[in-house]
């Protein structure tokens, strides 16, 4: 399970990095091939980067599907919890389990719809237009990502039933920014106070 968890994380990180590098390369390529340097310009134009946009989109779609599954595990998906938070602990538990169940069901159904869709697609010769990659492979992100997401919802629900803990993404937490440290930094810097009393501008 630990291995699966890490695979999921590194997979989305790699997709994110790859998409960024590819798009950046395509921009640099277009920019350089617009500069009139004999020979080099012709050589640059011959390099075909027209697949970059399509690949970026597909990498991000895959990242979105698997990242959404990771998001269930880390509790990043936002919901309207104003009302639920006012309920008694017992009722609250019922609602939370209900919404986790809904998540599992929805993503499970979507996974199955997606699987059928991919199955149908695999029996056609449909390809993407730039990379000419079989479309069923591209669309595989839907069933795989959705089933994984469904599994994550069930996992979170089971954990909640057993321990009462929910993964909660803390939107206010900043990695690498220690508040105490920041205060000291602020004090050392030019941020020294001075009372305004009697001070004319």
């Amino acid at each position: 399970m630990k291995l699966l968890d890490h695979l999921e994380e590194y997979f989305i990180a790699v997709l994110m990095a790859a998409a960024t590098l590819i798009t950046f390369t395509a921009v640099v390529h277009r920019y350089l091939s617009g500069i009139d340097i004999p020979v080099i310009q012709d050589a640059l134009i011959k390099i075909n980067m027209s697949w970059a946009q399509e690949l970026t989109i597909y990498l991000f779609v895959w990242m979105a599907k698997f990242g959404a599954a990771y998001g269930v595990r880390s509790g990043i998906h936002v919901g309207v919890d104003v009302l639920v938070n006012r309920l008694s602990e017992k009722n609250k538990k019922v609602f939370i389990l209900m919404s986790l169940g809904a998540g599992a069901i929805f993503t499970g159904v979507v996974g199955t719809l997606g699987a059928n869709f991919v199955w149908g697609m695999a029996h056609t010769d449909q390809t993407s237009s730039d990379l000419e990659m079989p479309m069923w492979i591209v669309y595989l992100a839907i069933p795989l990502g959705s089933y994984l997401m469904s599994f994550r919802f069930m996992q979170v629900a089971w954990h909640y039933v057993r321990t009462g803990d929910l993964p909660k993404h803390d939107h206010s937490h900043v990695e690498g920014l220690d508040v105490e440290e920041a205060v000291e930094a602020a004090q050392e810097g030019a941020l020294q106070p001075k009372t305004a009393a009697g001070d004319k501008l």
């Binding site: 959404a68 998906h77 936002v78 919901g79 309207v80 919890d81 009302l83 639920v84 938070n85 609602f95 939370i96 209900m98 919404s99 986790l100 809904a102 998540g103 929805f106 993503t107």
Partner: peptide
């Protein structure tokens, strides 16, 4: 209002 993620 059940508090489930908006996307779901």
């Amino acid at each position: 209002l059940t508090g489930m993620p908006i996307s779901i």
